[in-house]
Design a protein around this nucleic acid. Structure first.
Lengths: 197, 197, 197, 197
DNA sequence: AATGAATGAGGCTTCATTCAT
DNA sequence: GATGAATGAAGCCTCATTCAT
């Protein structure tokens, strides 16, 4: 809300940011609470004023970023536009997120299956994919993309997306705007080849 | 000595199998050496007759399965065949591996970036992708698939492959032969749409 | 804060005292960290708030007492007095230390060669003997004591000193003031017989 | 008994020799049974054919060398000679042993108080010193050396002896025949100054 | 609210000892 | 006798968590 000067972020957020760094670098079990505290420039005990436990901390972090992704993608989603454009917007929006918040992206990717995520976090995780699945299904029923198991098509595209982003984050691939566009088109072709134009 | 039926497997292999189970279920840092020992039905100390440390154990496991993948894929690769068929064979071969050894596949996927992998393991890791990259590059120079950053195209396909396999392993997707064929074709289309036929 | 009566000593000192007891009784490798903790009436983990490792603990203990000896002996050393008196003062001062702090004396004796002492501790160790060596050398150049390898004479006296103290600590020898004086005189005679008077 | 060619030493002796090396270098608790086995070029289990336990091994080693020292010194002791010569012979004999078997000497010195020595080993330990004590006592009653606590005088000389030998073994002191003679004379003077000549 | 010392369970690893070969 | 794989107790150390300040 403050304008012009960055307000001191709340302690809880500082902790979440530090935890993000640590968990991405060394994993959940590979990170100790004192390490997170050190990175957040606070005492170890202080973390327990904001989070009940290390488990609660990862779960909070996970939900925070899942919600953020969902918000961003949904916010820009052009409900009434043609499927081809919906696809493009969603894809580019996710790209934008992955590039803007690489650590958050990596964190969500690495941890989405972890046993320390509680039931609620696991549930949240399914949201975005269900959204995408519905989009694919509608496109299929409109005959714009190929028939077949909806989940298969959706996972194909998601997987491709993740593969490209990871290659970029590992430094194996430069992501110019042209490259982004190419990837997006290739994914659409995977869905639609020989159907729409 | 026994012929025809598997003799008691060597202790080292029993340990590797137990470690694979544990690491896939709980991660490296989330798995304790006594847990691995228990799963292998041996005493904790015995593990240290076969592996110098927990680190040495993951690295051995990683190399074992990387080598296995490489062997299988390369063994069936039809060097002289047209690119379209090379692609299909490679894809199906990797699929076969992922279905036959789901834990090994998951393990390789989850750990390929881990800090506890030593230099040699990291080096081995690059093999398969380089092989795929060369294949893509040749196809590009033949004009059979679209132009663009080779790595991008390769990662797109690899990512899609992994996404589909993971969905299957998570029980979200049934992989019938038709579904396999569809996925394979969709990936080829991602590479080739509007080029070959 | 308390005046007159010793306040609760610092935790680090409690640990050092407990470690001294244990190391003298059972040696370094024969003493476990939990044993030290138990003797100090603290939890085992607490030791690691004060010392990085068991090795660091012995080294700290060694340096503490070496410094203490050096301080005591040097403090009383009569720089300008005749050699005969310097010798007597030094000898009696060391005796006083050995009787006042028998465990520290035994510890320093037993551990001065141990492989777990780091370079700095080993360096400190040489101090007192060098001091004694210089004293012997000066006495030789003044013709007050016999000629010959300085180190030999110095070690002779140091060894004799240690032998007597050990016999006392083992309960094989009562150390009355007369016995002390006799020992001191005998050592001087070892150095000086037939020279000074 | 064999002449000309060294017979293969008995396994038990090979083990004792290896144990001596290890115990001197790293101490009893700092040495593992497999280490001893490795140094003896045998399997770890084999040691248990010759010694009931690690404890039994040290005790056997201790007794072997204590007996050796006693034998050597007593063998040469000139029963009827004057005290001055008895002293010289004993001293030189011990010196000869310390120089010929430096590891055994160091071992006996370092371990003579250890808690893992059983009652019998501890008893044996006292032998040589009692022998020396009797010699001193007789010399005192003859008025050849100074009066005073017998144990004190004996420990003085023993301590001096050990100090010199250790300095030599540490490389801080060269032991020429002249230096040996000087040390011996100085020790005698410590006992006798102003009495005999 | 914030701290950081203290705790003790648990992790990785070593090792004395046993035993089937 | 000789071996060395196997054992599991115990050692050193880390860490999630608590609590007095």
């Amino acid at each position: 809300m403050a304008r012009g000067r960055p307000p001191t972020p709340h302690r809880g957020d500082v902790i979440l940011a530090a935890a993000l760094d640590c968990f991405v670098e060394r994993g959940f079990h590979g990170t100790s609470v004192p390490e997170v505290a050190q990175r957040a420039h606070i005492a170890a005990g202080t973390i327990y004023h904001y989070f009940d436990s290390k488990d609660a901390l990862v779960n909070a972090l996970f939900r925070k970023w899942k919600a953020e992704v969902a918000t961003r993608v949904v916010a820009k989603f052009p409900g009434g536009a043609p499927v081809r454009q919906q696809f493009r917007v969603m894809w580019l929006e996710m790209f934008a997120f992955a590039l803007a918040e690489p650590k958050a992206f990596a964190f969500l990717e690495l941890h989405h299956h972890a046993s320390y995520l509680d039931a609620e976090s696991q549930a949240i995780d399914r949201g975005l994919k269900q959204f995408a699945e519905m989009m694919v299904q509608r496109a299929q029923s409109e005959g714009v993309i190929r028939a077949g198991p909806t989940v298969l098509l959706m996972e194909l595209v998601f997987g491709a997306f993740i593969g490209v982003v990871r290659a970029h984050q590992d430094g194996r691939l430069e992501l110019t705007p042209e490259a982004c566009a190419l990837a997006e088109q290739a994914c659409w072709d995977a869905l639609a080849a020989g159907h729409g134009r």
